[in-house]
Design a protein around this nucleic acid. Structure first.
Lengths: 305, 305
DNA sequence: ATGAAAGCGCTAACAA
DNA sequence: TTGTTAGCGCTTTCAT
């Protein structure tokens, strides 16, 4: 009865009626909420992942519950609360230690990981091709004629650091440059650690002409250390970073870096997750994203000695 | 019957039973979820606010739903969905335009605003004392002997920019320095706008010796412009920023700035909100936070001409 | 096609 | 104190 229709419609208007989301969730057995878990909410890469995820989630009627975990215990508790108690329909997990979610995640629950490389033991995954990115960063340097190329890695327990390390090593190998353990030191992603790393590297290998830093913060620490030591960047020392963080172009000199599209990675995670929810029959998927070289002013042809 | 107790307990263990959060929400009429709305999730200050809010929320059994809004329309829709449909118990709104929430927020719903100054038309508010912060930034400069002190503001439609502008003006007045409209130009918070602003200022007032930037990003743009113009910072030009953003000490020179504790502001917001929820009878509250001067190397005594 | 009712999994009010 | 039940506001199934 179209007339009844109309009356209902107008009552909806008059009463300013809105269906109650919780009641609906109760009846339908789904919450239209996704959780995004990360070590923190402030690191630009995480925040940007989340922003990407949130944007596509909202487009499709989902909300994003954001939570951080300081350690394994918190992670486990969080997942337990969120999943076992039915608070969310799916999980996006951003963790530098992919082992963590892999070990503790219920595998009958819709989940997507943000990762550093493809993995067999993970169902849905969006990852940056870190191997290739680091390969390209290193290759950029070899193509500029550098042969004594150092590397400052992140903590090697992290997938992403391992992958970048492999990319670095492979690029050197392909350029016919023998690996030299003296040329690689591990940092902890902080600018401070990058600063310390350059000092260390220079005592070990005073003849180095370039360094690839596994992230921009460490690269910036290296820039600082170089300046303190009287090195001219890029004339005496080339530096390449990773991430293309905000203001990377405002450091001195403007930082050459491998840009990763963290927003797109976040979007990919959310898409994967929502697809898994709407088509449970479709199998697991892994999405690979690529970084791109942004040449600014911290890299230059090797200085003729 | 303590025996029954025990049997129930063990059944809980055996079945791995967890009360269903949604069902509980349905029955209790509360979701134990707070929403945090901000223009985006990536700006460090917003992200840090959220992280602070999330940490105290979780301590008290609440989760944080994070959402961003690009414009007024989105904001209104978001609030409508979240509030009218009973998805959350309370709202934390981070908006540079306090007018926005003030106009569109239901006033019978628990809400806390993140603001730039105290306001009569707002119930619960956590704010940075921007007036005082800008006053101190400017005073730092006057105490170094500067008298031709320029200012690069944010968009003046924003409370926060207005407040900082007032602080700047008051500090000059108290130092017996006449205001000069030629010395203040508006930016848009971006480094690019800071860069442009210095060029503009220098054409208008070539004799300026210092500039207070209303945020660090613009300060960094000013540093860059200064360098391009051959100005020595801080010898020929003092610059002070605002925020103490990550890596502020890694720019060249390390940035002197007013630090704001954005994490604490976020915490304050969440506390205010949860208190309002647990003690509805307690009246509205406003919490003031203060910035602190961090002297690094972009400010120095005025150069004797 | 339209309308009635059962049920989602809890909590809280009420009886016993 | 202990146990029972109504009810939160929807959706969906099942009669009509």
């Amino acid at each position: 009865m179209p007339e009844t229709q109309a009356r209902v419609e107008s009552a909806i208007q008059d009463l300013d009626y809105r269906p109650h989301a919780i009641a609906r969730s109760m009846a339908q057995g789904r919450t239209n909420t996704l959780a995004c878990l990360a070590p923190n909410l402030t690191d630009f890469t995480y925040a940007s992942n989340m922003e990407g995820a949130e944007s596509v989630a909202r487009e499709r009627g989902y909300y994003l519950l954001c939570a951080s975990f300081a350690d394994e215990r918190q992670f486990v508790d969080l997942v337990d609360e969120l999943v076992a108690r039915g608070r969310v329909d799916g999980l996006i997990v951003i963790s530098p230690f992919v082992e963590l979610p892999v070990q503790h995640l219920p595998n009958d629950f819709a989940t997507v990981l943000m990762g550093g490389c493809p993995r067999d033991d993970v169902q849905n995954l969006a990852y940056l091709d870190n191997h290739r990115a680091a390969y390209e960063a290193t290759e950029h340097l070899t193509q500029l004629g550098h042969r004594r190329i150092a590397q400052v890695t992140g903590p090697l327990a992290e997938d992403c650091a391992q992958e970048r390390n492999r990319g670095y090593a492979d690029a050197l190998a392909d350029a016919g440059i023998p690996p030299d353990p003296a040329l690689v030191v591990a940092g902890d992603w902080s600018a401070t650690s990058g600063h310390a790393a350059l000092h260390e590297l220079l005592t070990r290998a005073p003849d180095l002409s370039a360094v690839v830093a596994q992230n921009d913060r460490m690269a910036v620490g290296i820039l600082r250390a170089g300046r303190e030591l009287g090195l001219q960047v890029p004339d005496n020392l080339s530096v390449i970073g990773f991430d293309d963080m905000p203001l990377a172009s405002y450091f001195d000199p403007p930082l050459t870096t491998m840009r990763q599209d963290t927003f797109a990675i976040g979007q990919a995670c959310a898409c994967l997750l929502m697809d898994a929810l709407s088509q449970p029959e479709a199998g697991p998927r892994q999405i690979r994203l690529e970084a791109s070289l942004v040449v600014r002013q911290t890299t230059a042809p090797v200085h003729p000695c």
